[in-house]
Design a binder for these strands. Structure first.
Length: 594
RNA sequence: GGGGGCGUAGCUCAAUUGGUUAGAGUCCCGGACUGUCGAUCCGGUGGUUGCGGGUUCGAGCCCCGUCGCUCCCGCCA
């Protein structure tokens, strides 16, 4: 007989009654009646009740077993009597009547409760992650992650995408986030950088003639955390295709993502092809480049109505080049005044000068700005925004960029507070046609809006002839329920177009050669047109697990300050290590240890 | 770097809004109990109220500072 187990703690059924079995697992719940002791023994697969009778020599030893100790028990499987069956457990029809016990590992008292609803403080959960991960929910999440990744691999492999590894120790990339640096022992004063993404390598693989590529790729960025953004490292399903159009990239990814979401969720999922929304339209209708399409509200531009109105506050904004955006909401005219006051306060809190509104109720229109409007203005607003009795229009007026943002946040807040977000639905969309360049207010000049490797729509001609701010890129995002899953692009594989694009963004050719030497050199020696994208694996698993924090789907995440509390990283290193790396410390506060 | 929230027993929380010796559940320790499944019952250990300073006759509560966690802004090609 196996020294540890003949069955897992999820295996035994009534059909096993009468046979002998050996089980190993963690002591979960203990119910000690003095005359009989019940223990729920738990492993990865389930829970089985074991029974220890008082005449056994080891009875008192078992009474002393603390929760989470690991034990091995041997005995006879017995069917439970009808009145003692536990219908909540798959193994609830049987119990193991124990004849031999071995304690494999006695547990100290724990800093966390593993049973019940309470999670405990996140700091403790992270410090004792190995305990936290014993919870059923965490086991489920981490297992889901494993299955999702396996499914992604299978789906891409079936489509003829080979998986490649790319270097972890590479060179610092000049654009983007801060790099994690690794000092070189052999080359004093020089550093490797951990890749922020395998971007350049996957493009070089296309130039190498591999045609297609994917990788479950670790990415490292030294940026601050968010609930949906783990500090330090995260994983992307990195994909690249040669000789592919944007539509072919979309088709491939829709197939994979739809397949993965359908495989691991019962929620309703948009059928492919997913809706495609030009960036400009997304900013107008949803006020964001990652719209949550579950919210049934579409923002409208009503600048024209107010330009011709007698409402000076809005008219003057429009005359100065600003806009007025209307947010129509159905059937909330009967909300109390406090609701509207709360929305106004919210808008002001996010940088709006105010939040005007009109209420269509019982055949009349009212609201703080009603008295400034002519009847034909009100009619125009109603028809342009599709509102009728019972509906409300909120208004935001500002320069275009802040007005879009504020209207978008108000839309989201309304959707959330009014319970307009349906559950059980995944709404996907592509946001396409991102601008190639944008005006950088801080620097006072034109810069890349997204990523300098994208092919401008219209190619060289567009760069030469159009206003840079009008040039669009073959640059796209895929968004699910307001969560950005991925950015991608059809890449710019033409050196001359790349030099021109960088010139517009203010960089001379030498800079391009210096920073992207490997890529430009490769592009001079026969490069296929290519493109791809890289959906975030952690975020996809987070959505599928219905978690709101990305840390819940990562086995060993760092905390918000990029520390691993369990392993105590980052940590100090020895003087010898520093000497070998030619590094001398210069700490911000000499009296404060790091 | 900035803003909001939180910080009381190992864990989850309370403390009549400034008033006697900071309580309860849980965990842990001891005891009772032969059918439980969040077992139950009795008893016990456990606190520099994150830390430092201030106001006050008196501070868990008010003020200032600081540290930690978390959410957000900046940042994330």
């Amino acid at each position: 007989m196996h020294p540890y187990r003949t069955h897992t703690c999820g295996d035994l059924r009534e059909a096993d009654a009468g046979s002998v079995a050996r089980l190993s697992g963690w002591v979960f719940h203990k119910r000690d009646h003095g005359g009989v002791l019940f223990i729920d023994l738990r492993d990865h697969y389930g829970v089985t009740q074991i029974v220890i009778h008082p005449e056994k020599s080891f009875f008192e030893e078992c009474q002393r077993w603390r929760s989470e100790s690991v034990v091995t028990v041997y005995g006879r499987v017995a069917a439970r009597t009808a009145d003692t069956v536990n219908a909540d457990l798959p193994t609830g029809g049987v119990e193991l009547v124990v004849d031999e016990v071995t304690i494999q590992s006695a547990a100290d008292p724990l800093p966390l409760h593993l049973a019940g609803e309470d999670e405990g403080p996140e700091e403790t959960r992270l410090r004792y992650r190995f305990l936290d991960l014993r919870r059923e929910r965490m086991q489920r999440n981490i297992l889901l992650r494993s299955r999702v990744i396996a499914s992604m691999r299978r789906r891409l492999t079936e489509k003829g995408f080979p998986e490649f590894q790319t270097p972890i120790l590479t060179s610092s990339s000049p654009e983007g986030a801060r790099d994690y640096l690794v000092p070189s022992r052999v080359h004093p004063g020089k550093f490797y950088a951990l890749p922020q993404a395998p971007q350049l390598f996957k493009q070089l693989l296309m130039v190498s003639g591999f045609d297609r590529y994917f990788q479950i790729a670790p990415c490292f960025r030294d940026e601050d955390a968010r609930a949906d953004r783990s500090p330090g490292e995260f994983y992307q399903l990195d994909i690249e295709m040669a000789f592919a159009t944007q539509d072919e990239v979309f088709e491939t990814v829709e197939d994979v993502l739809h397949g993965v979401f359908a495989e691991f969720s019962d929620w309703e999922i948009d059928a492919a092809p997913f809706v495609r929304i030009p960036y400009k339209e997304a900013m107008l209708k949803y006020g964001t480049d990652k719209p949550d399409l579950r919210i049934p509200i579409e923002i409208r531009d009503v600048s024209g109505v107010f330009a011709a109105s007698d409402f000076n506050a809005f008219r003057s904004v429009v005359e100065k080049g600003g806009v007025v955006r209307a947010i129509p909401v159905k059937g909330i005219a009967d909300r109390p005044r406090s609701f509207f006051d709360k929305m106004v306060a919210f808008a002001q809190g996010i940088g709006s000068k105010g939040l005007a509104y009109l209420v269509w109720q019982e055949g009349k229109v009212k609201g703080p700005i009603f008295k400034f409007l002519k009847p034909e203005d009100v009619d125009a607003l109603a028809s342009q925004c599709g509102v009728s009795d019972g509906d409300v229009l909120f208004f935001v007026s500002d320069k275009e960029k802040p007005a879009s943002r504020i209207a978008g946040e108000v839309r989201h807040k309304l959707g959330h507070d009014l319970g307009l977000i349906p559950s059980g639905v995944y709404k996907f969309c592509w946001v396409v046609d991102f601008p190639m360049f944008e005006y950088d207010e801080e620097l006072g000049r034109v810069g890349f809006s997204h990523n300098p490797f994208s092919m401008p729509q219209g190619g060289m001609q567009a760069l030469q002839e159009q206003d840079p701010l009008d040039v669009l890129a073959y640059q796209y995002d895929i968004v699910c329920n307001g969560c950005e899953l991925s950015s991608g692009a059809i890449r710019n594989h033409l050196p001359e177009v790349m030099y021109k694009a960088f010139e517009i963004a203010g960089y001379p050719p030498e800079t391009v050669d210096e920073r992207f030497g490997a890529l430009i050199r490769a592009f001079r020696m026969g490069a296929p047109p290519h493109g791809g994208l890289a959906p975030g694996v952690d975020r996809i698993v987070m959505l599928l697990a219905h978690e709101t924090s990305i840390r819940e789907v990562i086995a060993f995440p760092m905390n918000q300050r990029a520390q691993d509390l369990m392993m105590d990283a980052p940590s100090s290193v020895s003087e010898k290590q520093l000497r070998e790396l030619h590094i001398r410390m210069q700490l911000p506060h000499a009296d404060k240890p790091a």
